[in-house]
């Protein structure tokens, strides 16, 4: 969920922008000049994936896939998400300039967190079951954390937002399950079809 312009208090906006700047700086350090086409094209793929709507009962929800993004890009998720959200603001007017920092943080921090928590499973080349569980948890937790961060940024702006914040978290719960299922199925698919995409991020550390 994108928080739109004019809602959050200045201190939250500044804090979000500062943390995002730090995250993007770390992310850019991980990107070699020559990797830029690869990271750019992958973030374009994630941008398009976020346009995919899947049915959920009577409504349809769009994918976020920040867990998968963290899985594949690691720290590079920060600049990738920043660029993706900038383009979403420019093309579709979701979010905006002043909220770019907070929105990026809300999406990218869970991605990086999940990369640290669940990335090891990919590296250790564990069995199919363990792998699926980790991938499911990765997709779930990323969305749940995003929901909590969105709620937190609303709540810290003012107590009046408490109810809206609770609803924001509740709305993320069903999406979380779907994201978990999709992330698990998608990573299993990638493991079969193109494992180097999953391991690329970890190869340099071995």
């Amino acid at each position: 969920m994108h928080i739109s312009e004019g809602v959050l208090s200045p201190s939250i906006l500044v804090a979000g922008a500062a943390l995002t700047t730090a995250g993007v700086a770390i992310g850019l350090k991980h990107i070699d000049q020559k990797d830029i086409p690869t990271v750019g094209i992958l973030s374009a793929a994630f941008f398009v994936a976020s346009l995919v709507h899947v049915p959920l009962g009577p409504i349809s929800v769009h994918l976020i896939l920040n867990g998968l993004l963290g899985f594949i890009l690691g720290w590079k998720a920060f600049p990738a998400i920043l660029v993706g959200l900038t383009l979403q603001a420019l093309l579709f007017q979701y979010g905006g300039i002043t909220t770019l920092g907070v929105n990026t943080l809300n999406m990218a921090l869970p991605a990086v967190t999940c990369y640290y928590f669940f990335g090891r499973v990919v590296r250790n080349n564990s069995g199919r079951l363990g792998f699926s569980i980790a991938a499911f948890a990765c997709g779930c937790c990323a969305v749940l954390l995003s929901g909590i961060l969105v709620a937190l940024s609303l709540y810290l702006t003012g107590d009046a937002f408490l109810l809206a914040a609770k609803v924001a978290v509740a709305a993320h719960l069903p999406v979380m399950l779907i994201e978990g299922l999709l992330t698990a199925a998608c990573t299993l698919f990638l493991r079969r079809v193109k494992p180097e995409l999953l391991e690329g991020q970890y190869a340099q550390k071995l």
């Binding site: 086409p37 690869t38 750019g40 094209i41 992958l42 374009a44 793929a45 398009v48 994936a49 995919v52 899947v54 994918l63 896939l65 998968l68 594949i72 779907i178 299922l181 999709l182 992330t183 698990a184 199925a185 998608c186 698919f189 990638l190 079809v193 193109k194 995409l197």
Partner: peptide
């Protein structure tokens, strides 16, 4: 959900090849 997951997976595979 599985079909969509494979769709996204295929998108990523194709994109990385293209990259």
């Amino acid at each position: 959900y599985k079909t969509f997951a494979h769709l996204v997976g295929m998108l990523l595979v194709r994109s990385s090849d293209r990259a």
